[in-house]
Design a protein around this nucleic acid. Sequence first.
DNA 1: CACTTATTGCAACTAGTGTTGTAAAATAGA
DNA 2: TCTATTTTACAACACTAGTTGCAATAAGTG
Lengths: 198, 198
Amino acid sequence: MARPRSFDEQELLETVMKAFWRRGYSATTYRGIESITGVGIRSLANTFGEKDELFLAVLASYRGRVSRNLDLMFESPSIDSIVRFFERISSPSDAEDPRRNGCLMVNTVFEVDKPTAAVTQEIAQYRDLFRRVFRESLESDQVPDPEIRADFLIGALWGAFSQIRLTRDPTSAKPISSIVVETLEIWRGLVPPRRPAA
Amino acid sequence: MARPRSFDEQELLETVMKAFWRRGYSATTYRGIESITGVGIRSLANTFGEKDELFLAVLASYRGRVSRNLDLMFESPSIDSIVRFFERISSPSDAEDPRRNGCLMVNTVFEVDKPTAAVTQEIAQYRDLFRRVFRESLESDQVPDPEIRADFLIGALWGAFSQIRLTRDPTSAKPISSIVVETLEIWRGLVPPRRPAA
DNA sequence: CACTTATTGCAACTAGTGTTGTAAAATAGA
DNA sequence: TCTATTTTACAACACTAGTTGCAATAAGTG
């Protein structure tokens, strides 16, 4: 019995997500979102609340997107899955692809100075997505110390995102990816948890 | 024949550096610097110019500091030097230590949205510091593909800094460091440039 | 057709920040 | 002691961005 909204929430979140991904949190102004989406400031504020909350909704949406991708790529987790994942990370992208700016979550870690508890939790959950698929993949190939190695892989991944963010070019992470892949191949043969002879 | 400055430039740059390191670029306001250092805004502007230029001076100072440290640690470059370096990165720090916030340069890569050409160049030079010592270290132990592996190590390092920045605790990078060290030990035995048998 | 209710557009308000002008203060040298 | 010259303190300016109030508008529903 009232006027319906003139825009679709999910669709708008996608658009806003690209803006935050491309320009970062503080450079993406509320008024800028207005002109990009065509939705007035007042409607945005009515629907999502203040900027923090809109951003949080965007992060949740981003995490959902990545989660679905990971479910596909790691449907049967294995070292090969990880290899494919790292090769995809450093694959080329055109000028419109927001992947040129790395990872929205990693960018947020650095840009938002005093993150809300909700933002911190969102990032932790995001990190755990990778932790889980990496660990399961390593376990399925009987690699020793899967938790520690999963943390290492997350580190290498975030380093790759840093490199991409610096150069605005995913292919600049190829050296990192290639050595990660080489290391994964070595791990395949690591039945006893110690290093080969020097 | 004129009034001398009431503060020491280098000393002030050190103080300001810690502020930028701790709180980031935009959260460190010109007025905040005034109250931290006791030096008036007008004097700061007279001496260093606008905020960009002050920040650039801080970055240069930071790079000089790191460069001197690296010269010491890699005086005779070797794999052992890299191992010691990664172990130091993830060593504990007290609450006052700005190392809790990771690396000022990496933070800058993410925080400053449209970096000046001068800032970009500063970051590139900083990155080359590590590139060089890593490469020389790998070469001295005859590890194959030293350039690519140096890039990988920079990636792992930046991933470690990301992790530290996320948790505000250097020891959270220990898993990353430990696997990097393990990988370095493996590289020692890599005389032919290919992987061991699976 | 009227009425209720949420949405929307406009504009104002507030807070914070970089920057700059001006005049007073201070110091080294003549 | 006087003077030239720089530093310094204070304050104002300009601009940006998040937030909010209010009235007009539009769409379901009886």
